[in-house]
Amino acid sequence: MKAAIFHGPHRPLTLGEVQVADPGPREVLVRTMAAGLCHSDLHFIDGTYALDAPAVLGHEVSGIVEKVGEGVIGLRPGDHVIGCLSVFCGHCGHCTSGRPYSCDHQHETRRGPQEPPRLSQAGAPVGQFYELSAFAELMLVHEHALVKIRSDMPFDRAALIGCAVTTGMGAVINTARVEVGATVAVIGCGGVGLSAVNGAAIAGAGRIIAVDISGAKLDLARDFGATDTVDASGCDPVEAVRDLTRGGVQYSFEALGLKRTSEQAFEMLAPSGIATIIGMVPEGQRLEIDPVSLLYDRRLQGSNMGSNRFRVDMPRYVDFYLSGRLHLDRMISRRLPLAAINEGFDDLRAGRVARSVITFDP
Rank of each mutant, 00 (worst) to 15 (best):
L258R: 15
A50Y: 09
S356T: 15
M280D: 00
R31V: 05
A171N: 10
Q106C: 08
S333Q: 08
E17Y: 04
T175K: 10
V184C: 09
L256Y: 03
I208M: 06
S262D: 09
T245W: 00
M305K: 12
G83C: 12
L326W: 05
I149A: 09
S303C: 15
D152L: 13
V230D: 01
S293F: 01
G74C: 14
S252K: 10
V178T: 07
V197S: 01
P154F: 11
L37R: 01
A240S: 11
Q250S: 15
V18C: 12
N342H: 05
V81A: 10
C89V: 07
G188P: 02
P113M: 08
R118E: 03
P25N: 02
E60C: 05
S303H: 13
V72T: 09
A34Q: 11
S262Q: 10
C89D: 08
L326G: 05
P23S: 06
A164D: 00
T359L: 14
R76A: 15
D52R: 14
G188M: 06
A176R: 03
A265P: 10
Q301W: 11
D319P: 07
V318C: 13
G257K: 15
F345C: 01
G188R: 03
L57G: 02
G248Q: 08
Q19T: 14
L51F: 08
V281T: 09
F155P: 03
Y296A: 11
S272M: 03
V147D: 08
L300Y: 04
D22E: 14
T175C: 02
I332L: 11
I277Q: 01
V72L: 12
V238G: 04
G78Y: 13
R222V: 06
Q264C: 10
Q301H: 07
G190E: 05
E60S: 06
F44V: 15
L294G: 07
Y101H: 10
E283A: 13
C163K: 07
F6L: 13
G123N: 01
P271H: 03
A221D: 02
R222I: 00
Q285Y: 10
Y49K: 11
A159S: 11
M153G: 07
